[in-house]
Structures are given as structure tokens and as C-alpha cells.
Design a protein around this nucleic acid. Sequence first.
DNA 1: CTGTTAGCGCATTCAG
DNA 2: CTGAATGCGCTAACAG
Lengths: 326, 326
Amino acid sequence: MNIYDIAREANVSIATVSRVLNGNGSVRDITRQRVEQVLNKYHYVPSAIARGMVTNSMKTIGVVSIDIRNLYYANVSYSIEQALRVLGFSTILCNTGYDTEQKLSYLKMLTEKKVDSIILIGSIFKDPKLNKPIKEISKSIPIIIINGYYGYPNTYSIQYEDAEALEKSVDYLVSRGRKKFLYLYDADTFSGNQKLLGFKNSVKKHDLKFDIRFIPPGIDHAYREMCELINQGSFFDAVLTSEDITAIGALQCLLEKNIRVPEEVSVMGYNNSILSLCCTPRLSTVDSLSEEMGKTAVSVLCRILSGEKVEASVKIGAKIVLRQSA
Amino acid sequence: MNIYDIAREANVSIATVSRVLNGNGSVRDITRQRVEQVLNKYHYVPSAIARGMVTNSMKTIGVVSIDIRNLYYANVSYSIEQALRVLGFSTILCNTGYDTEQKLSYLKMLTEKKVDSIILIGSIFKDPKLNKPIKEISKSIPIIIINGYYGYPNTYSIQYEDAEALEKSVDYLVSRGRKKFLYLYDADTFSGNQKLLGFKNSVKKHDLKFDIRFIPPGIDHAYREMCELINQGSFFDAVLTSEDITAIGALQCLLEKNIRVPEEVSVMGYNNSILSLCCTPRLSTVDSLSEEMGKTAVSVLCRILSGEKVEASVKIGAKIVLRQSA
DNA sequence: CTGTTAGCGCATTCAG
DNA sequence: CTGAATGCGCTAACAG
């Protein structure tokens, strides 16, 4: 069932059918009704592909992250998808993992499918092998990166103020009398570096004692690292992390060793994910405003697509939420 | 840059270009090389839209769930996307929420985009207003529903053995000497009903005392319900739930009231999500095998698309994982 | 207000 | 092994 069939049955031309379908151009009321009747009779559904062929757009955006199972990515993807939907766009979901070849392959697929834009979530896309392809793609469609930065033309960046968030956290803990800080982080990314930078700056500013540990992602690595540290006799009264899950691993070790949180040691997570509500005591954490990040990305995109000049980089945030662990 | 440009520059016809692009038909080696050279020179990318126009497929599948922020949906979506990718399909992500109109609107969008199939995650799609549209759509493409059932032709169902999982849980707890059971659930869905059924059957089989409570989703509702129950003097030594997060809410209440888990009360969650690792004590839970569910859906789909006759319904699972809470 | 016509970029016959 | 011709379903001039 196509536009010709409808036209024939309604005794009009395909142009008229197209007009009533898209609500543009003027059609006499009687004619419109006649066409609509046929449309309904056959449950006619226009082909977005054929339309895309003409308009050169499928009204589709590629949203790519490492792994949607990560709560932060899930939250951001969700808010992007919802905002996009309102604008009439659908979203192609891409979980690239860490492999560069996979990332390239997803980029290629999105290019073939002629998406109207690509939104990258997470600075994992700082892989240098991706630079040229990204630059190339950005010549034909805008690329938006959340928590990352490229600096090419037609490339836009939405960044959370990670450094500031860490500074706020340290400031708060200092105000509560904490003196010796531990920072646990698990990712050498754009965001990861910002966080680290914020921690370092802040700790220097207050002239604090501190230790920094890089550990693989996951609750158990954090748990083990913490136990080892304590067994070695390290002393600290505040532990900050780059992820909620890391904080929870540390917390569980502390609890097991009967070290009271927050009385003896303060613990702060990062992301304000639902995980931070599941541990006991509940986690104080940085609210990474995932919803706002996603919405902002889409609103930036929307302005780009409607031809506005848009600032290449927008910053968001830095908010901490205090619960029981600090 | 299209196939004509390439053809002209390589001094061949578009048919030949098409042949080397798709690797079918035979092309003389020299000719192929000449074409490939031009292809590379211009970083030519074929248009999936134009291809879709001819083949009537964009090699795209719609994956729809209520809300990808829910860990279970995220996990299933992830494994679907990954499995699909290997087969050369991309996935359009749809978060419908609970509103029927939204669901219809997503269904319409997917139909317009001519997806090759739709995979529904979760039985929320039992909304009767969806029946006719689903039935209609299934006339042109296969529909796969995870944890639900339609029974229309060209409609397939992948179901987790929720009833059995609950039975296993109760059996286990009985074997540990538990006598009075509480079941907390939050969703009146296909899966939800299966779980409830399993609980009821099992509790009758063992001739146990039990209570069942329906509460809104979320950790705090579970927490409050539990506190209320205890304040009212209800007694139970085993609490089962339909979601990990519910179990954790209950657990937090128990802990706060200095009721020891699992010594005095056993608690079991559902899903084996990462949440179950974040609480203390860590949660014993039902492993809902999200990865297997997703993979199975795709493998079923793959067989359907290649023309095989496929069973309309496949069942998976029932596995519990024991940790500290029970 | 309505119809005619010309592509959009590709896969796919059918000839040669 | 290669090329010419056709059509997929629709939008967008353009003409009437």
C-alpha cells in the first residue's frame, strides 16, 4: 500500500495525498476528508525510508556510549531519547565497549544510516584513532560529545563541572574536620582527569595529606584495595571516589572492619545513582545531573539543526548531595 | 558522492560499483581494484536509505521497554543490541513509560521506519488497547515479547520461569527452617503475576503462614511498608520480593530495627542486579538471566528472519543465587 | 486548490 | 564479466 494506491482510490493525485499526509500546502476540505477516509480504511503508514530518500534524513540520531548497563550512561541515554522523541527523532542505541574497532564500526554504521547527528556519551572517545573519522563525520553532521571535547568545527561539547564537584566535596569534608584524604578512581578519561584535577587542586589548596589510587572498575576491586590499605596501616578519615560503586566497595570494607562511617571516616561517592541509596549508611555523593546533561545535549542539538549559531562548549553543574556517609 | 560519481570516475557502470560494494556478482579483478581505489579515494559511504528503499529493509530492529533506567531493562537491551549488531542490525531504543498513547506512538514510528522486527521487553504491553495494533503489525513483521505473551501468528514469546524461581526460593528458605513468609511486589504484569503465582503455590504446598503486600515501586515505599508491618507487630522470618530494590528497602528497615539478617529474618531479592551487591549484608536473589533472555530473543529472531519455523514460546531459567541475606 | 513531473541513490533484472 | 534500464515510495518544484 503506497501513496499511489491511496491516490487512485481517493481519485486525486499523489501530490494531494502527500499534502494531506504532511499537513502542508492547501487542500480543499472535502478533498482532504475523502483522502483521509481512504488513508484510514487501509491503515496507511507512510514509508519513512522513501521520505528519507527525498529529504536525506531519517529523523534519527545515533546515541553512543560504552555500555548502557552503566547507570550513568543509562540515565543520560534515557533523557536524550525522551527529549529527542518530543522533537520527532528516534534514537539508535550503540554500546561500543572499549575496543576502537568497534567504535569505528558503529560510527560507520551511523554514517551509512544517515543519522542527523551523533551524540557521544563519555570521553572514551578521546581515542586518537577516532579523531580523523570524527572530524570527517562532523563535516556533514553535528557531533555532540557529553563529557569530552574535540574542538573541531561542527563539534559541540557538554561538560559537567567535575573538577568543581570534587572541590566542593573536599571543601565540605574539610569543614567537617577531615584531614587525611584518599581518592579512588577507575577511569583515565576526560571526566576522570577533570575529577582528579579537582581533587588535587583542592587538596593542595587546603594543604591536606592525601593518597590517590587507581583501581579497576567494580565493587570488589574497591573493596579489596581498601582492605589492603587498611591492613597496611594507612590512615585517612575521608575517602572520595570517582564512582558510587567504588565508594560502596570501600564502605563495605570499612564496615567489616568496624570502622564507623561517618564518625571515623567520611565516604563520598560520585553520580548520585540509585546505588547510593542501597548501601548502609546511605552514600553522600556528587549529583552528576544526568538528566540535565541529556536534555542540554538535545537542546543544543535542536538549536544547531535549526541553523542557530551555538556555543561550542557548555558547562553544567557541580552539585553535591549529602546523606549519611559524610 | 553517490554510486554514479564513483562509476564515472572508475569508468564502469553503476552496476559494477554496486557489485564490488556488495561482493556479489563477479567482477574482474582489475576492474574491482580500480573501483575500490576510487571508493577509498573519496571515503565513499553507501546510503543505507537508498538501499533500504530497494530492499525494503533498513536492517534495524525496534527495542522497546518502559524505561531503560531500570537495570533489568538496561541489561536485556544491552544484550539484545550486542547480539543484533553481530548480525548487522542496529537497534532503535524506545522508552515508552506507562502511558498507552506513548506506546502506540512508538509503535507507529517503528512501523513507519520499516523496522525488520520489534522486540518488546516486559509484559506492560498487555494493555488491551495495544492488542489490535500489535496483531496488525505482526502481519508484516515478527514481534517478539520478552516476559509476555500474545498468541497471535508471527508473535513470539521468551519467558523467564518466574513461578519456578519463586518456588525455588521458598523451598530453599523452608529448608533453612523459615516458617512465616512475606511477599512484597510492585507490578501487576505478566511476570509479576507469574511470580505471585509461584509464591502462592509454593507457600500452599508447604502449608506455610504468609502475607502478601502490593506496594508502589521504589526503595522507600518498601522501607516504609516494612516498618509499618513491624510496628504493627506482624511476625515473619522470611521476606521475598519481586525486585532487588524492594528487598533492599525492607532490609534497611530490618537493620535499623536491629533485627538480624539472615539470623532472624531471611531476605531475598529478585533480578541479581548490581544493587544486590551494594547492600549489607549482600542480597540473596533470583538471577533473572537478563543476558540469556536478550540473546535468546535475538537468536529466535534470527531464525524467524531466515525463514525457519520457530516455536511460538520459549522458556528460560529459574536460578537463585545465594549470598548473605538468606 | 490540484495535478504532472523529476529526481533521491541504490539493487536488480535482462541483454550483450 | 559488464552495462542499460527500471523501479522502490515519496517530496518538491512547477504549471495550470
